[in-house]
Amino acid sequence: MHEDWKLTAFVKDRLEEDVSDTPPHLQDIERAAVSASFALAAASRSRRRTWGIPLVAASLAVVFGSFVALNTGRSPEPEQTVACVIDLLCASDGNADGIEADSVAEKLLAWQDAPYEHAIAGLVANKVN
């Protein structure tokens, strides 16, 4: 086996003896590397763009949900929202004295900004009064 090792070492030396250590076609290889590098970067940017919009939307939804949850302790039920708006509209159209100076628009704005239960309570109180 030692003789085999000597032989292969000899062959390796001879095979590499007349080979230039300057890589052939190096400039072509580097050009291809630069092109591929640009293509990779572009693909990476494209992937970021594709994922960016859903990511931003999802982030906003989470922030909004957190805001609602923090301010109300629970999410508003859809039927409550509908009932609230109907009440407001009825009060505005059917009985102007009921809400007096508070316009429907102002109530809606207050409802958006204030905690949900408080807004409902305020609306009910106004309607009762």
């Binding site: 390796k12 095979l15 080979v19 230039s20 890589p23 190096l26 290889i29 590098s37 990779l40």
Partner: peptide, 22 residues
Amino acid sequence: GDVPSLSALVRRHAVWMQAFLR
């Protein structure tokens, strides 16, 4: 995408790879 790193790799492996392919 560091091209100089690739160039260094090409130079480092130039001799044996040419012998191999020859």
